[in-house]
Computed example of a mutant assay.
Amino acid sequence: MTGTPRTDTGRLMELLSVSLGAYYGDFTLAAASENLTASQGKALTVLRRGPAAMRSLADTLTCDASNMTGIIDRLEKRGLVRREPSPSDRRVKNVVLTAEGERVTDAIRARMSATREGLERLSAQDRDTLHSLLERVFVSQ
């Protein structure tokens, strides 16, 4: 039966939904332990990859630009991010994670015990395979 999938796409989508729900719940509790909303925590996680323009952040987090402004305002007030002019277009403000923002992001990840324990049950080879598959499905679009 080479070439015939053992699991249909619908079943995979359902398992992804359950998995992402568990991850999101774990993430939300971890962010709350740092007195952050899930949206604020997600913004910090995105900024961990590097500075981003406000519009790009709003697109990545699939939220309205005005909502993104409020999220960033609150994070900036806590000293977790700062705004700085874009080197290529001074009209654009990039949002940059501060050292304290990095610490908080690390603390959120460290508190995600259910997710961490689940991933640690996988062998190193399985984690590498999962990484490769997730990149192929979601990153290489």
Rank of each mutant, 00 (worst) to 15 (best):
G70Y: 07
A31W: 08
S19Q: 06
R103S: 11
A31T: 09
T45A: 15
V104K: 06
N67G: 04
S88C: 05
L29N: 03
A110G: 11
L36Q: 10
R109G: 14
T105H: 08
V104M: 09
V95S: 09
G25Y: 06
M112G: 07
A58Q: 05
T98A: 00
E34V: 06
R90A: 04
E102Q: 09
L44N: 12
T105G: 10
E14D: 15
S19F: 13
D89C: 04
A99I: 01
N94Q: 09
L36C: 13
G25E: 07
P85R: 15
G79A: 13
G25L: 09
E117R: 01
L57P: 11
E76D: 12
G25K: 03
R49Q: 01
A22H: 13
N67F: 14
R91N: 05
S33M: 09
E100T: 06
K42M: 07
R78E: 11
S17C: 10
R103N: 13
E84A: 08
P85Q: 11
V92Y: 03
E100Y: 07
L61T: 01
L57C: 03
G25Q: 09
Y23G: 07
I72Y: 08
V18E: 14
I71P: 02
M112Y: 08
A65M: 11
R90Y: 13
T105N: 12
A38S: 01
R90M: 12
L75D: 08
D26H: 10
R82V: 14
L29W: 05
M68W: 02
L97T: 06
V18F: 13
V81Q: 05
T28S: 05
P51A: 11
A107I: 07
S56E: 15
Q40D: 07
E76R: 08
T115C: 02
M112C: 02
T37I: 07
F27S: 05
N67C: 11
L97V: 01
Q40W: 11
R49Y: 04
V96P: 00
D26S: 11
A30E: 11
A114E: 14
L29F: 14
R103C: 01
N67Y: 13
